[in-house]
Structures are given as structure tokens and as C-alpha cells.
Amino acid sequence: MSSSDIFFGELIGTATLILLGTGVVAGVVLKKSKSFDAGWVAISFGWGIGVLSGVYVSTQLSGAHLNPAVTLGIAIDTGVWRNVGTYVGGQMVGAIIGATLTWLAYYGHFKAHLADHEIVSGSRTPGAKAFNDVRETEERREPAAGQPGPVLGVFATAPEIRNTVQNLATEIIATMVLVLLVLGIGLNDGLTVSGTGGLMVALVVVGIGLSLGGPTGYAINPARDLGPRIVHQLLPLPHKGGSDWSYAWIPVVGPLIGAAAAAGIHNALF
């Protein structure tokens, strides 16, 4: 693989992943959407399908890491670091593009949602309580300067209970599960050649969302959280609130620690 193949493969694959992932959250969160209030199961499957689509779009070009944590885990496991920067660069650019496309696709819905007095003032709290991306405290008041607002959950993750140790541990554990699976698939040539490996990764992402996504929204991917959070920061949306940068390090550092731990375990066992 050439460096350009890797960069553009990761870009298009990650953009596809983020477009479909943030898109399903937007559909569930934004009041005028036809899928409004569909709940956490819809979000979990939407992200899983986003992973599946991103993998199949980019496998032939870059091997479809789509995640700096996966890239780190593979580099530690194999000892090959040459293209790590190229992978991560493509992933970050792709994540920003994917989140921007979601904003364009739902442009009118963002405007309507943030112009709705019941949403912005919080006199009506959305009924979908199964997903953590939009917290009730964010919906009950006009967001103060710097405070998360009612659409940040479309772009980035946030914890239901703010506890630094627990939130970090959740991201570490969830990412360990993901990276152990990815590295395990790499040992089975049949899964890789048949393309079944991509399906298995997508299904485990759904499983992580359903089983471990409740506390933090399961970023398990630094680019997935940081890229869209940057987009939220830059978008000209009135009443959008802050981008919660005080929390933003956890969905970056946690997945990287989890990936390193998974690679260490995998390397020791296999």
C-alpha cells in the first residue's frame, strides 16, 4: 500500500463511518426527524452499520483501520510504525468530513431543533431516555457559555455520570474488547480473505454499544469523537452550547490506553 492509498482509504472509510454514525444520532435526537426518539438500539445498530460500510469501502486501499486506537494496537502488536501518522491523519480528516456531511444532511433539522423554545429552554425534555448522547440537564435550560448544549450529542460523546475514573475505565475496557477482536481476526486468513472479518467487527461494535455504551456513549475511537467535536465547535449554530472540552480528553486517551493494553495481551498470548 502506498502512503496516498492509506491516507485516502482511511479518509473515505472514516468519513463513511462518521456520516452514518452521527447521522443515526441526529435522526434520533433532532425533533423534526422521522426517526426522532427511536432510542439507543437504533443508535447502536446505526454505528455498527457505519463501521461495516466504512470497512468495505476502504479495505482494498488501506486495510480499513478507521480508528487511531486500532492503528496503535496493530503497530504495537506487529512492531511496524512506518505509516501510523498517515493512518491517523486520514482518519481525522475523514471524521471531520463525515460530521460536516451530517450537518449538511440535517441542516434544516438543526435549525428547527435549536429554534424550538421547548428544546432550548428545556420546557420539554425529549422522551428518548435510553441514549446518553443528549443529557436531560442539557435540555432543561439555555446552555450557559461553555456548557454543553442540546445538539453536542450528535457529534461527540458525553458521560451520563461524570466520574473521571469510571468514564476512563469504561472507554479503556470497551476499546480493549474491540482491538482484541481486530487482532484476533488478523490471525485468521479465512476471515480476512472472505470479508467476514468486517462483518464481525461491525457486530462487536453493536454489542459494545448495547453492553458497554450506556455510561459514556462508547467513543472507542479518538477520531470518531475528536473530529466531530471540532466540527461542533466551528459550526455556526445558535444556542448550540459549548463543546465540552473538559471531557474531550477521555474519549481520546481511554481508547489509546485500551488499544495498547489489548495489543500487549494479544502479543503475550499469541
Rank of each mutant, 00 (worst) to 15 (best):
G39P: 07
I43H: 09
I49R: 09
I43K: 11
S58Q: 02
H65R: 12
G63L: 01
I49Q: 02
G54I: 08
I49M: 05
S58K: 06
G48W: 10
S62F: 01
S62D: 00
G39W: 11
T59Q: 13
G39V: 02
Q60M: 12
S62V: 01
V51R: 04
A38V: 15
L66T: 07
A64V: 00
S44G: 15
S53C: 15
V57F: 13
V55T: 08
G39E: 05
S53Y: 04
S62Q: 01
Y56M: 14
G46D: 03
I43M: 02
G39N: 08
Y56D: 11
V57K: 07
I49H: 04
A42G: 14
V57R: 07
V41Q: 07
W40D: 12
G50A: 12
V41Y: 07
V51M: 03
G46C: 03
F45W: 15
G46I: 06
G63M: 02
T59N: 12
L61M: 07
Y56G: 14
L52N: 04
Q60R: 12
V41K: 13
G46Y: 05
N67P: 06
I43N: 08
L61D: 01
G46N: 09
V55Q: 06
A42T: 15
S44C: 15
A38C: 15
V51Q: 01
S62C: 00
W47P: 00
G50H: 09
T59K: 13
V51P: 00
W40T: 11
W40G: 14
G39F: 06
H65Y: 13
S58D: 01
G50Y: 08
S58M: 00
A38H: 14
S53T: 12
V57T: 11
A64H: 05
G50F: 11
S44D: 14
W40I: 11
S58N: 03
Q60G: 15
N67Q: 07
Y56I: 11
S62A: 03
N67R: 11
F45S: 10
A38F: 15
S44F: 12
A42N: 15
A64N: 03
L52E: 04
Y56T: 09
L66E: 06
S58V: 00
V41R: 08
G39M: 05
L52R: 06
G63F: 02
G48P: 09
G48F: 06
F45E: 05
